[in-house]
Design a protein around this nucleic acid. Structure first.
Length: 164
DNA sequence: GCGACAG
DNA sequence: ATCTTGTCGC
């Protein structure tokens, strides 16, 4: 893996991002027309030649009309992975590819859904926060597991639980 | 020192 | 995240 900045430096960047994050919900659902979702996958080099090829990350973004959920557009970006997975520093590994794919879109969404945490993060700057602040787009972070904090699991559709 | 730890 | 093998549900 390529050299990376000091953890201290990365923490400062996250604190900077957290300070810029707008926590208040400014999204007006009545004016929500275009939404987007992004997810990443990793492309590994063939076993036979792993000595030469490097791992790559691909980010795909899909634009949907809301609330019909009809497909509007899509874009993707493939780039070399230059940062390892470290809990708490996920954005430095995945955000670059997401930003790249997003910029390839012709139309910009009113809301972006990311596969990673947002403000529920040790320094309040998870992947969704990082991407949202970078793009200045309303963003929601979705995760299958909590990075930190505890809370009950919502069961019914529409049910919510507080994470503490 | 030990355990936890988004994707 | 990814891989592999087996099992479950529609």
């Amino acid at each position: 893996m390529a050299v990376r900045k000091n953890t201290e430096e990365l923490y400062r960047i996250q604190e900077e991002i957290a300070s810029k994050a707008v926590i208040e919900d400014e999204l007006n659902l009545d004016n929500l027309n275009v939404i987007a979702g992004a997810d990443q996958a990793f492309l590994n080099p063939a076993k036979s030649e792993n000595e030469s090829k490097k791992e790559r990350i691909i980010s795909a973004v899909v634009l949907l009309e809301y609330p019909s959920m009809k497909f509007i557009d899509r874009a993707y970006s493939v780039m070399p992975v230059d940062f390892p997975y470290i809990p708490g520093l996920l954005s430095f590994r995945e955000a670059p590819a997401i930003l790249n794919a997003f910029h390839a879109l012709k139309t910009k969404p009113d809301l972006l859904v990311i596969d990673g945490g947002g403000v529920n993060h040790p320094r309040f700057a998870g992947l969704a926060t990082h991407v949202g602040v970078s793009l200045d787009v309303a963003t929601i972070g979705v995760t299958k597991d909590l990075l930190c904090g505890t809370g009950e699991l919502p069961i019914e559709e529409g049910e919510t639980c507080i994470i503490r």
